[in-house]
Write a protein that binds this DNA or RNA. Structure first.
Length: 218
DNA sequence: TGCCAGGCCCTCTTTAGGGCCTT
């Protein structure tokens, strides 16, 4: 299902990226937190081409401040399918596609923890749109997802702190980052592997590194 | 008793400290 299109000139071709976002009961699986909702948006050729979203019931109460933040209540998750069933569907939806998330260190912890419950390991590496935006848009007021959506005038996707709205916003941010890299460094055919390397380059060395990538044929 | 995420990044740094960002 094609949802919206944004400047497909600058998108990598024939590579599908899976942008994910979790809503959870807390900050870390190590503290016993579990997901309450997940969304996955597939991005290909500069478009948001498919999406998966579901609330899930991991058998935990939703703390009051998180209900206030997300709008997701204990009653809502108790009426939802089991976390095991939802995560199995999400894993199948993502498949082997490279992963993207905003502040990926957060979402990757929950993704890995849920994979572990199924006895699986993650084969692909995460790209973090927050790390990329810190490098590409260093002068932004801050690098919160909502702030970047507003300052970069990205498409509105719905209520913040709901999984699908945040995953779509992250997908549009990713495409905007790719567009900026293409224009600034004359890159073409940007792939996940390039973004993985870019997010490890310090801001001070970014221009030099980017130029070397361009001369290497990116 | 007191503390309680954690990886990244900047700087008044590197033998460290503190803010950012996610729920």
């Amino acid at each position: 299902m094609v949802v919206k299109t944004i400047n497909r000139r600058f998108a990598s071709e024939s590579e599908t990226l899976a942008v994910i976002d979790f809503e959870t009961t807390g900050m870390s699986p190590a503290e016993g937190a579990r997901p309450t909702e997940i969304a996955v948006v597939l991005v290909r050729d500069g478009q948001l081409v498919d999406r998966y979203q579901s609330l899930m019931n991991a058998g935990l109460r939703v703390p009051g401040f998180i209900e206030e933040l997300t709008g997701i209540s204990t009653a809502m998750v108790r009426a939802a399918p089991s976390a095991d069933k939802v995560m199995a569907q999400a894993f199948a939806f993502v498949g082997d596609h490279p992963l993207v998330a905003h502040n990926a260190s957060f979402d990757s912890k929950f993704w890995d923890a849920e994979l572990g419950r199924m006895g699986k390991n993650r084969p692909q590496e995460f790209v973090c749109s927050m790390l990329l935006s810190r490098r590409v848009f260093p002068n932004a007021a801050n690098h919160k997802l909502g702030t970047l959506v507003q300052s970069l005038r990205l498409p509105a996707t719905g209520r913040y702190h709901r999984a699908l709205a945040d995953a779509e916003a992250t997908a549009y941010l990713l495409l905007r980052i790719q567009e900026e890299l293409s224009q600034r460094y004359c890159w073409s055919g940007i792939r996940h592997e390039h973004l993985v390397r870019l997010q490890r380059v310090t801001r001070a060395k970014l221009d030099t590194w980017a130029a070397s990538q361009a001369s290497a044929g990116l």
